[in-house]
Amino acid sequence: MAAAGANISKPGSGIYAGSGVALMLPSWLIIGLFLLIPVLLMLVYSFLTKEFRGGVIWEFSLDAYDQFFFYRGLFGDEPPVLEWTYIGIFWRSIWQAGAATIFCLIIGFPTAWFIATRSGANKSVWLFLITIPYWVNLLIRTISMKFLIRDTGPLNEWLMWIGVISEPIHMINTNFAVQLGLFYSYLPFMVLPIYASVERYNFALSEAAADLYASRWETLRLIILPAVKPGVIAGCILVFVPSLGAFLAPDLLGGAKTFMIGSLIEEQFKGNAGNWPFGAAASMILLSMVLVALGYYARQQNREA
């Protein structure tokens, strides 16, 4: 989605020249007022003092960031040492999102290639089949996955029935379950941009490579991959970014050991911890990471263009 979004179209010589600002105004107002200002306000909140049971006191404070990075003892009077709990949660989130991205790439690239090389009508049917699950409610998909891989769920029952295993494999509440959930949530995001790149690929290049004695896999590595790289990068960003801040998959498929950023933030506002400035600070850190990833992506795209 962001792949299409990242490319600003050239201004054409449209007939509504001069009305641009007026036509943009509704979107600027709505998004500016209800998203841009809130995000800026969140930045302000992350520097305020927490009020117990939610909310803030309007007093400047670095406590939220301090709490995130340093430990000062139970009563806050010891010299600061690096606090690994929250950094660890962020690190685990990056790791989980990264693993999910790699799974998506391993399955998604061949799928995208296969679909893009089908003939006309078949192609659009295949594409349609791949996109349908994306439109099914994410919550329902995650619940389905949870149901499928439970210890007493259909997958284990079936595997035991055909005799591959004798004991149920414990999958739920593991890292693997979370990665599987993320993979399942965002797989179409990997397939679609790669598909779009392969569609644009000029197969005469493959023929030229073969003519010059390249094997199939050499052609893939030396010619095709460089050509479709923008699509691959777009796919990876599109899977990685939402995975990083995901809430449903880690919450429903994972347990305490697989706590991710999303759950940490949610807990500050909905749960018992109720520390709004800390939640705002964690959100800001997440947002910065995402913007860095998107900035990298935009630079790549510009370089290609």
């Binding site: 600003i8 179209s9 201004p11 054409g12 010589s13 449209g14 007939i15 509504y16 020249a17 001069g18 009305s19 641009g20 600002v21 007026a22 036509l23 943009m24």
Partner: peptide, 8 residues
């Protein structure tokens, strides 16, 4: 605005 209003 983006596609039919030129540059602004």
């Amino acid at each position: 605005a983006m596609i039919r209003a030129g540059n602004f």
